[in-house]
């Protein structure tokens, strides 16, 4: 790395704007790994040492992409049960700083806890964009003091 230092400093002085342009280059990370191919979401969560957490403590959390730049995918709006009783997370997805977001429904087993935030590890942003907009039909709210179990991840960098 140090070999490139003079070159780097030279270019740095002239064009910090380029840093902003290149800021979205991503590197593969050990944290928040997607489930291995062919494994069910439930089985992958079981490997992530699921921990008890209050539903009410999840509402409002940022939902991040498990990458070094911690891109914000959205925010937890509600925790619901679908008609099979499975826990699902209604995420205000996309938009910018909360404007233009639309609600989508993500299975809790596709998500993990990262400290005060959550991450979606099982779907890429491209896949999430294809998720239908949540209509509110066929689900019921999980009470705020319901305790559910959610898998863990380490920080990505």
């Amino acid at each position: 790395m140090t070999r490139a230092a003079p070159l780097r400093l030279l270019i740095w002085a002239g064009s910090v704007a380029a840093a902003i342009a290149s800021a979205h280059a991503q590197s593969p990370t050990p944290g928040g790994m997607p489930p291995p191919p062919g494994m069910s979401l439930a089985a992958s969560t079981a490997m992530r040492f699921p921990q008890p957490v209050r539903v009410g403590d999840l509402v409002g959390r940022d939902v991040l992409r498990p990458v070094e730049s911690q891109d914000v995918l959205g925010r937890v709006r509600r925790i619901v049960r679908d008609h099979n009783g499975r826990i699902m997370v209604v995420v205000d997805f996309g938009g910018f700083l909360g404007f233009g977001a639309r609600p989508i429904v993500v299975p809790i087993d596709a998500m993990v806890l990262l400290g005060q935030d959550m991450e979606i590890v099982a779907y890429t942003p491209q896949q999430l964009r294809a998720f239908p907009t949540f209509s509110g039909a066929g689900v019921s709210d999980a009470a705020g003091d319901t305790v559910i179990k959610v898998g863990l991840a380490k920080p990505s960098h």
Binding site: P30, G31, M33, M47, R48, F49, Q51, P52, V53, R54, D57, L113, L114, G115, Q116, G151, L152, A153, K154, P155
Partner: peptide
């Protein structure tokens, strides 16, 4: 208190 706490290690949580 944040419940549960934040996990970190030099390896992925699956390898605990």
């Amino acid at each position: 208190i944040l419940r549960p706490p934040k996990f970190n290690a030099y390896y992925d949580v699956m390898n605990v």
